[in-house]
């Protein structure tokens, strides 16, 4: 690996200053599971690596039922699925955190890093959209917020400008009679990149028989993770039954614009969208009814 300078700032202001004033290319280091491999294989270069894990806000995992979840951008995935309250409040996020690589990867990899890597196949990205997370971005000029749905702009690209870093992700407080799920398809049991993925969030009425709000998001079937807008609109007011999940899956297929590559064809990916949306809606509804 080519050498670089290393800095481990302890405050957001110091990190923003380092990133903004670096003479060459500065890269943020969170868990390093993407970055260190990319640097070693010369896929990306860095003159300065800024390790953000000594900044307290970047590794926070603060949840309360009233205010929601504040997830530091470099908080490792294992802390999400090992936290029973967070896993119960945001099951789609825990579903994804549990299957990002194996244990050694989830010990280090973070949801913020997954988002900043901006792969359309990143497992935690669809749950961020389904759960309506907001991204808190810090730069020299202060703080701005972007919806998770607007963060990625193209494969490997996002809205961060030079000198900016993702500080944390903020999730709304869990709504009553609501829950979520994430599933992906891979040809192996574990440790693979999604051929397609879907995350669903639903809210039911008090009787638990009708969907009153829904957000379905799709991964690995477009240049960026995206919301299945037509399905989401149609789902409001529908009965929470199998036929509804099936129809939503069909509508979501229209939101996908996949490519054919070594992992799957356009036809197969569209088919997977239908199956995964149907399954995640069914799981999310079952969890909402079970009071998760």
């Amino acid at each position: 690996m080519r050498n670089f300078d290393y800095a481990a700032p302890t405050s957001l202001a110091e990190a923003a200053s380092l990133l903004a004033r670096a003479p060459g290319t500065a890269r943020v280091l969170a868990g390093g599971t993407d970055l260190i491999v990319q640097l070693r294989e010369n896929v990306r270069e860095a003159d300065l690596v800024v390790d953000v894990k000594r900044i307290p806000e970047l590794t926070e995992l603060a949840y309360s039922a009233g205010t929601g979840l504040h997830l530091g951008a470099s908080t490792p995935c294992y802390r999400i699925y090992e936290d029973p309250a967070v896993s119960a409040a945001y099951p789609a996020l825990a579903d994804a955190a549990r299957i990002i690589g194996g244990w050694q990867i989830s010990s280090r990899a973070s949801v913020g890093g997954n988002l900043c890597n901006s792969s359309p196949a990143g497992d935690s990205l669809a749950p961020l959209l389904a759960l309506d997370a907001r991204c808190v971005i810090v730069g020299l000029d202060g703080t701005r917020e972007v919806a998770a749905a607007d963060f990625c702009t193209a494969p490997g690209r996002n809205v961060l400008a030079k000198g900016e870093l993702l500080a944390k992700l903020v999730f709304p407080a869990p709504a009553p009679k609501a829950s979520s799920a994430y599933e992906r398809f891979i040809p192996r049991n574990e440790m693979d990149i999604a051929v397609a993925g879907a995350s669903s969030w639903v809210q039911l009425n008090a009787a638990g028989d009708t969907i009153i709000d829904a957000r379905v998001a799709l991964s690995a079937v477009a240049p960026t993770v995206r919301l299945a807008t037509a399905a989401n609109r149609w789902l409001v007011g529908q009965p929470a039954v199998e036929a509804t999940f099936e129809r939503a899956g069909e509508l979501a297929r229209e939101s996908a614009s996949p490519i054919s590559d070594m992992r799957g064809t356009v036809e197969f990916r569209r088919h997977l969208v239908g199956v995964l949306v149907k399954r995640t809606l069914a799981t999310a509804v079952a969890r909402a009814l079970a009071g998760e």
């Binding site: 280091l29 390093g32 260190i36 491999v37 050694q104 010990s107 280090r108």
Partner: peptide
């Protein structure tokens, strides 16, 4: 970071030491 032959525990959790600086 794929094979795990370099696994060590860092603060009690297993990590691939080849992808830790």
């Amino acid at each position: 970071g794929n094979c795990g032959a370099c696994t060590v525990l860092m603060n009690g959790v297993p990590v691939n030491s080849c992808i830790v600086l």
